[in-house]
Computed example of a mutant assay.
Amino acid sequence: MIRRLWAGTLVALGCALPVGAAAQEAPPVDIGGLLRVGVLTHADSTDGPDGFRLWEARLKVSGKIGIVFDYYFQTRYDPEDDAFEIHDAIATLPLMPELELSLGLLRPLFGFEATQHRAELTFLDRSQASTAIGPGRQVGLQGSGSAFDGRLSYGAGIFNGNGRAVVNDGDDYMFTSRVQFNSIGTISFYDDFVLQAGASLGYSSDTSAPLGRGIVTGDPSNAPRITSDFAGERVFWSADVQATYRGWGLTGEYLRADYELAPGLGEGAADTEAYGGYLELGYRAWGALEGVVRYDAFQPALGADREFMVFGMNVYPGYYAKFGLQYATALGGSPDAATLADGRFSFLAQVAF
């Protein structure tokens, strides 16, 4: 009976497809992906593991459903778990040019570098502060838009605050917002001097929320209430500025998070904070060869201050490809960080489409 039902359904669909195709064309689908592979090595072979790396592998599908909403779905391969995971799953309702609503698993509007696509990063990873304090992908609702010919962009959202987890922790939520001003707008030319500035603000009340990489360093047992299962309230904010002119670019960003720990969960101080930022100078010649240097500093909630100078060289042989070389050196005897280590070389080959 079940087989006959399936057979009848397939026959009916097969008969209906030509009619439906003639009546209305299927909406276009945009398929893209990101692949980042390379080699990690150290000046001193005893400092850490060397070898080939698969840093990123993504596949995305996006498009429109009539005039109702846009969709964006992206899956990512996680080398650590050797499994695929949903990276983005977003339905967007464009109400007007100045406002659209997005619902699903998405990246909150917080921070400058934290909201950049990984393919557009000048270095292998985001800065320490952006990695640690940026809230990462969340499940929630976000509104965003732009005005004044793209010069002003803005957005705010409400999220579970638990990362990719669909469930919420104790009916507590995360709120984030960002505003950004660009002196030129969405279109700029080589000879234009472009000044951009932005600010972000976030708040979250949590009972068991994951924090970004690098917040806790050293021995986590010394701070049992600020690990990957944070309980308490946190306020986090950032400010950034960028100036570009004729291939030159200067970018600075500062991020800070203040944590009020929930009482009765063990020993330790009731409040703590994490803060840091970066200052980056780069130059791209002929649109194909880029040199960049960055000062990257971060003070975690637990552990010593981590200061690094990071030097990079990027080659763009085509619109979709990138090759990069990066070297990091610690300042003042800083210990290794979550994404940086003293004397570490990184070689990157990237394809994004």
Rank of each mutant, 00 (worst) to 15 (best):
A7I: 11
V11L: 08
L13Y: 01
L13H: 00
P18C: 04
P28F: 01
G33H: 09
L35S: 08
V39W: 12
L40H: 10
D44E: 15
D47N: 13
P49S: 15
P49T: 08
R58V: 00
V61W: 11
G63Q: 05
D70I: 00
Y71V: 06
Q74P: 02
Y77M: 04
D82E: 03
D88T: 00
L93I: 07
P94H: 06
P97S: 00
E100Q: 06
E100N: 08
L101A: 02
G104T: 12
L106R: 13
F110S: 09
F110D: 05
G111Q: 07
H117D: 09
H117Y: 11
R118N: 15
T122P: 08
L124R: 12
L124K: 13
S130I: 05
I133W: 09
G136D: 02
R137S: 07
R137T: 08
Q138K: 01
G140A: 02
L141P: 08
Q142A: 06
S146I: 06
F148L: 13
F148V: 11
D149M: 08
G155L: 01
A156M: 13
A156G: 12
G163P: 13
N168K: 12
Y173C: 03
M174D: 02
F175T: 14
S183D: 09
S183G: 12
F193K: 00
V194R: 15
G202C: 08
G212F: 07
G218M: 12
G218C: 14
A223T: 12
S228L: 01
A231Q: 03
V235T: 13
W237R: 12
S238M: 04
Q242H: 01
E253A: 10
D258I: 07
D258K: 10
Y259K: 06
Y259F: 15
E260Y: 02
E267N: 11
G268L: 11
R284V: 05
E290C: 03
D296C: 13
Q299E: 10
P300H: 10
A301Y: 04
A301E: 13
G303A: 09
D305N: 05
R306N: 13
E307Q: 15
M313A: 15
Y320F: 12
G333D: 10
L340Q: 12
A341K: 10
F345H: 00
F345L: 05
S346F: 01
Q350N: 00
A352W: 03
